[in-house]
Design a binder for these strands. Structure first.
Lengths: 214, 214
DNA sequence: CGTTTCAGTGAGTGAACACTCACCTTTTCT
DNA sequence: AGAAAAGGTGAGTGTTCACTCACTGAAACG
């Protein structure tokens, strides 16, 4: 199994990059992350965050001066570190291979990136929930994601199309079907507490058939 | 185009069934619906609801005694009227036909039920957002949906499997792929303001290929 | 017409919230 | 060691929130 870029390691990297972050501040970020994921941003109080982090309420406000900044602080490492690596690591992995068949593409995406989805469930849940409700966050996420996909995923898709391994649909649709099918599994396992990985093989088959040339 | 069961007509039916509901109460429900969809339940205030409905704040509390009851009042017609009809109408439509090919199944589901998704976007958005955050609503929705699917959709799937028109996977997976692919389109059009219907034909092709027998 | 019933009103209320600040403790620097 | 800086504290503050209630106006009934 490959070393994965997840939110925990990303937090540490970001923390290291921006000087030493004291342990209580990390506890605040971790507590915010878990509470936002459980109850949503709006219905989490700063008092609850302080309690779960085991600090005083004033400590919550030392680094981030508002609750909104705290949300940004929770999402920032994910947006700046995790998301770009998510896409670029994948591209390297697929492009670097000598093969390049549709099956390899799909299997790599599903096995590898679903692992990522599982490891980052909490942040993804916050992101999805807040995107539905906050226009600024929605636009910001889109403007980060789209170029990443265009640079990293689309060339791979074009290559596979050229050698007749992939159906000739617009790249954004193909990406939509792949991402959507995986996110569906995230939603399902959130609802039913099912193991995500148990569904991987069927998801691979489904995508492989659905994206075969006509 | 078939007569669709959407949230507006459902509201009216529910209102008619439970006696005459005064116009200002309808305005309160409508204002709540739109505000919850826009900003989420937790960050909508009762003052805002009153303003958009053009009533005094006290009026908001005449029929529903708490804000939570108001949310339930908004979702109830959808859960009790719209959702059951969504599934059963579809089953009648497919089962009632003489054909029964995979293409007909998929085309019917996508064209017909996506129309439903579009018409009920607001409620669906509230439902999705709140399900991620409220365990009670999540369990309630699941316990309503699962039997509906089992009774209406699964027999159709079994039939198609028997005549070799559908891949032999568990019914819940097939349902997951169908529903998931359509909801993905809802999410996408929410993010990009794209017309939902413009994607229908590709979605049909994708599902038809992905769900073909191996 | 008097009485009852009900929808609607909006100023008011206690609780809970995000946020502050004067003070204390620990670490860092010389 | 002493001073300065930074981290941490929790009672306190002003505001906003969900919710209430005494009241008004209008319709329904005999």
């Amino acid at each position: 199994m490959v070393k994965e870029t997840n939110i925990q390691t990303a937090f540490q990297e970001v923390m290291a990059a921006s000087g030493n972050i004291p342990p209580k501040q990390k506890q605040v970020l971790a507590a915010s992350l878990s509470l936002f994921a459980e109850k949503g941003f709006a219905s989490t109080t700063t008092k609850e965050i302080a309690e779960r982090a085991g600090v005083a309420e004033g400590t919550v406000y030392r680094r981030y001066r508002t609750k909104d900044e705290l949300l940004a602080g929770v999402l920032a490492p994910f947006m700046t570190e995790v998301l770009p690596k998510l896409v670029s690591e994948f591209a390297e992995k697929v492009v670097g291979q000598t093969y390049s068949s549709r099956h390899d593409l799909v299997a790599t995406v599903v096995n590898d990136r679903m692992q990522f989805v599982v490891e980052n469930q909490s942040v993804l849940r916050i992101l999805v929930t807040e995107i539905l409700v906050r226009n600024d966050l929605r636009d910001q996420t889109i403007s980060r994601m789209v170029p990443l996909l265009k640079q990293n995923l689309y060339p791979v898709l074009d290559h596979l199309k050229a050698i007749g391994e992939l159906v000739d649909w617009p790249n954004d649709r193909i990406a939509q079907f792949m991402i959507g099918t995986m996110l569906t599994q995230l939603v399902r396992s959130t609802l039913t507490n099912e193991e995500v990985t148990s569904a991987a093989s069927l998801i691979i088959k489904f995508l492989e058939k659905g994206l075969a040339p006509e």
